[in-house]
Design a protein around this nucleic acid. Structure first.
Lengths: 334, 334
DNA sequence: GGCTATTTTTACATCGTTGGAACAACGTTG
DNA sequence: CAACGTTGTTCCAACGATGTAAAAATAGCC
């Protein structure tokens, strides 16, 4: 059986509360007793029962992170950074996967009671505003990622419109004129910001906004990117550049271009989004939007932290970490 | 404040225990009362306090998964599958990252008390046998992945020696004669099984086992694979094939071969290991060993489950899920 | 109706911990 | 030396749930 405070107390010959006081660093404990307790602690290898402690304190020591799929590199990388950032604040992270379906996202957000976790970072894909439970008696939530959900919650995301604008403007500056987009998802709000940035950049460059060059996808997976690229290449006037809404789509696109016998960037330039590690090693390496992922993870954890520490109802805050354009071989010949 | 059993009981006009009985599906509850309780449950939106329940039951409802880094695709994919498998048994998964350092691995394994989690799946990289705490009073541990650690614990891993043998034999069957290996790590036991399989396959083919073609790496990252490949290409007699101990190394190797102006598979054939999603989309797509990841995840969860259900000390079991060789463009021209 | 047998409900203790109040020991002070 | 403020310790209740056992309600039978 596990060692409890009581066992330690018996061994040290003091009360349970005194041991508790030592464990929790309470100042007024006689040195003699402190020493005895510490010896007993060491001898027994005592470890606090987190559940019981939190039952008493009303905290759980856990945070939840909700993502569509961990197997998507961006989420794997983000999860890793979130875990690291949370650890510094003493939190362990619990990961929930939703596959990006609205039902499972709703079920997850719903189930996040204050008993289970102290707070949650949610990366919704299909969630609508009224899927969120009333803030009443709920734990702090932080929204991550691109989303146009109109709900009063803290959020952390780079400026997706601006980032997409930068990406597309880069293609424009290289002289590309028929610039396609892969990743729009008209049914969901998810990709609307990147799409808006894409359109704005075309408009700013005086290029026609050709909806025939906007390819929707069901999921942000490599295979979807490849399929979308195939459709673009089959058109009468194929594009001379493609802005993909994430790196996976771009990797898929690269493959379709190669299979079609064309060259990147000579025939078609490609820009991705996320700067996943993979994108630096693809052949050719991807030019991509690089969000400051460390900053995102830390900002999210900080928001939860201050929400728990601070007053009940401060206004929702929105943090926009920086991003940059990582220029690589898929747009510029090295 | 959160709703407790007491609140529900008051509303339904019965005792706390009766509500508990309804919640837990106890048979002998008068239909009338059951109905009233269920209405009260619905009306209040009651959710059990997991911490309190587990305090009483002596279970936590959590499993830990220890991996080096989530940003490594193999671990991201595995973590996703483990979470899914655990969910079916009612467990939430807590992820700990160690960066593959022995200190952090030891600290993590050490901290996994029975209060925090019911069991743990650990994927060690540098851990030695005596780093494991005595089984005494400990939670069930399951070892995952390649490891030669000699400790009496349940484990789940494909037959790494055999898998490596299959990979290398495939290269032999294509007529390759100077077959290199990237990923050996002499300091750690981690890669010794794959190395053994590689050597055995060479021996079986009657090829000399050339240690000069065995390239060690510090981490299983793309950049390390690229660097190792560069070293191989700089040799007087470069290899005509390379067996990489994971897909990331292989992806890195692909890049170095390309930068060196050689072609895959014409000049150099490459085989990876893990069949990460990325490997199907690299250019060229990687031939790779494909472990049955779903089977690994489920076997691991099942082991924990039966260990908790069963008698205290059954002999450690070892499960070897199947694997296959996925043949793609990096070894065979399509 | 009275008695037993069965079903249903309740009160109580308990899991391991911590907050708060009560209490004991202590050196100071008037 | 009695009263006092400090300091250190203990006792008790509580967090929310469930197991146990006893109490209550109901049914069945002579």
């Amino acid at each position: 059986m596990a060692v409890t405070l009581k066992d330690v107390a018996t061994l040290a010959g003091v009360s349970v509360k005194t041991v508790s006081n030592v464990v929790n660093g309470y100042a007024f404990v006689k040195p003699e007793n402190r020493r005895r307790v510490e010896e007993a602690l060491a001898a027994t290898g005592y470890r606090p029962n987190v559940g019981a402690r939190n039952l008493r304190r009303g905290r759980t020591g856990f945070l939840a992170l909700m993502v569509p799929e961990l197997s998507i590199p961006y989420f794997g990388e983000m999860a890793g950074l979130v875990i690291t950032a949370a650890q510094r604040r003493g939190w362990s992270v619990l990961i929930e996967q939703t596959q990006g379906t609205r039902d499972r996202e709703r079920a997850t957000v719903d189930s996040l009671g204050p008993h289970l976790v102290d707070g949650a970072l949610v990366h919704p894909e299909a969630l609508e505003a009224d899927d969120f439970p009333d803030a009443e008696g709920k734990i702090p939530l932080v929204l991550l990622g691109e989303h146009a959900v109109d709900v009063a919650l803290d959020r952390v995301a780079i400026d997706n419109v601006q980032a997409a604008h930068v990406a597309v403007s880069h293609l424009v500056s290289l002289g590309r004129r028929r610039i396609a987009a892969i990743g729009a998802n008209p049914k969901r709000g998810t990709s609307s910001l990147r799409l808006a940035g894409y359109r704005a950049a075309l408009a700013d460059a005086g290029l026609p906004s050709a909806d025939s060059l906007v390819e929707p996808v069901a999921k942000y997976h490599r295979a979807e990117g490849a399929a979308a690229m195939k459709r673009l290449l089959a058109k009468e006037e194929p594009p001379d550049a493609v802005f993909c809404f994430n790196d996976l789509l771009a990797v898929g696109a690269l493959r379709s271009v190669a299979e079609h016998g064309l060259r990147v960037p000579d025939d078609i330039a490609i820009v991705g989004f996320d700067n996943t590690e993979e994108s630096a090693f693809s052949l050719p390496a991807l030019t991509t939007i690089s969000p400051d992922k460390v900053a995102i993870a830390e900002a999210a954890i900080d928001l939860i932290h201050s929400r728990l520490a601070g007053t009940e109802s401060a206004a929702p805050r929105s943090v926009q970490p920086p991003f940059s354009l990582e220029i690589r071989e898929s747009t510029v010949v090295s």
